[in-house]
């Protein structure tokens, strides 16, 4: 099963390689890994998407906790959380297809961020589902290149009890 794990780490030289080395060295798989500084410049937040059975995920969280530079590990799967990913999609766009592409972009609340003589570059933010959906719709026009950030995630704030 797929899990999204959020990991607070010391924002120090080499930490990324400690974490990725742990995954490769123990044969855990990484679907995506995003990392950036938090409000506190001494701390970074990593969002790791991985998969494995219950036993593997338990080992992953324990092994992460064991790293000296890891502050906190939170397996978001099974909790309420928000996840987002950003993709840049360069799509082939000839004169006769431009209007249609723009309509799709509009429906998905995406943006065209670069225009060339024969292409649009579309920026889209959303969960995995949404990115897949827009990709499917743009595919017939010819997708030239895609860059994706991988997922970032945060646990939801406590919901008000109704």
């Amino acid at each position: 099963m797929r899990h999204t794990i959020s990991v607070l780490v010391d924002n120090e030289f080499g930490v990324l390689s400690r974490v990725s080395g742990l995954f490769s060295g123990r044969g855990f798989n990484i679907e995506s890994l995003c990392v950036a500084e938090t409000m506190d410049p001494k701390v970074s937040l990593m969002t790791i998407v991985t998969s494995g059975d219950h036993k593997v995920i338990e080992q992953i969280t324990k092994q992460l906790n064991k790293l000296i530079n890891v502050i906190k590990v939170n397996d978001l799967t099974g909790q309420e959380y928000i996840e987002r990913e950003l993709a840049l999609i360069k799509v082939h766009s000839t004169e006769d297809h431009r209007a249609e592409i723009l309509r799709i972009v509009d429906i998905f609340r995406a943006k065209v961020v670069d225009v060339g003589p024969k292409s649009y570059t579309v920026e889209i933010t959303g969960d995995e589902e949404k990115i897949r959906a827009i990709s499917e719709l743009l595919r017939p026009f010819g997708i030239k290149e895609v860059a994706r950030t991988g997922r970032i995630a945060l646990a939801r704030s406590l919901k008000l009890k109704g």
Binding site: F13, G14, S17, R18, G21, L22, G25, I68
Partner: peptide, 16 residues
């Protein structure tokens, strides 16, 4: 050597 020994030390440091 910090890179080489990362997986076989409990922890390691490069003093900068």
């Amino acid at each position: 050597i910090v890179g080489i020994t990362r997986p076989c030390t409990k922890h390691n440091y490069l003093v900068k």
